Amino acid sequence: MTRPQPATSSRARAARPPWAIAAEAARGLALALLFCLTWSAAQAETAKLRVATRIVPPMVVEKNGTLSGFSIELWNSIGQRLNRETEYLVLPDVSELLDAVGSGRADLAIAAISITSEREDKFDFSLPIMNSGLQILVRGTAVNVEANPLRELMQLFVSRTLLVWLGIALLLILVPAHLMFLVERTHHSGIIPTRKYFPGIFHAMFWAAGTLATQADQMPRHWMARIVAVLWMFTGVVFVAFYTAQLTASLTVQQIRGPINGPQDLVGKTVGTTRGSTATAYLNEVSAHMVEFEKVDDLYNALLKQQVDAVVFDAPALLYYTTHDGQSSARIVGEVFHREDYGIVFPTGSPLRKQVNEALLGLRERDIYQRIYEEWFGKR
Rank of each mutant, 00 (worst) to 15 (best):
E340H: 14
M205R: 07
T252Q: 08
E285L: 11
A279S: 11
Q307T: 08
V56R: 03
L361Q: 15
R339D: 09
R195M: 09
T38N: 11
A112Q: 10
W19R: 12
Q155S: 00
D99C: 04
V158G: 01
A279D: 01
S9R: 10
P17Q: 03
T322R: 10
A30D: 02
M290T: 15
A14R: 15
L182G: 14
A41C: 03
L137F: 11
F123V: 07
V183W: 12
G326K: 15
P17V: 07
W376R: 07
T8M: 09
L82H: 13
I368V: 10
E120F: 00
L318G: 11
P193H: 13
F70E: 12
D124G: 08
I72P: 01
W223G: 04
T323N: 11
D217R: 12
L37D: 04
E294D: 02
L34N: 09
F313Q: 03
A245R: 13
L212K: 07
A52Q: 12
R119S: 00
T194D: 04
R11M: 02
S329K: 09
V56P: 05
R139L: 06
E73W: 07
I372G: 00
Q307Y: 04
G104N: 07
S287M: 13
E45V: 12
A225W: 09
E184Q: 11
V286S: 03
I173Y: 01
S117H: 09
A7L: 09
E62D: 02
Y342V: 04
E120H: 06
Q135G: 14
M59C: 00
L360E: 05
I344L: 03
V90I: 13
L247Q: 11
L318K: 13
L266S: 06
A25S: 10
V286Y: 06
M205I: 15
A22R: 11
G69K: 11
P6N: 12
S250L: 00
N83C: 08
M233K: 02
Y342L: 05
R119M: 04
S350G: 11
V158N: 02
G334H: 11
E285S: 08
E45H: 14
I260Q: 14
L363F: 10
T273A: 00
A169Q: 14
V237E: 06
Y369S: 02
V286R: 07
A142V: 15
V94F: 00
R221I: 13
D124V: 12
L82E: 07
L303C: 03
S328E: 15
A279N: 03
L82R: 13
Q135I: 15
S277K: 03
V253E: 02
G362W: 02
Q327S: 13
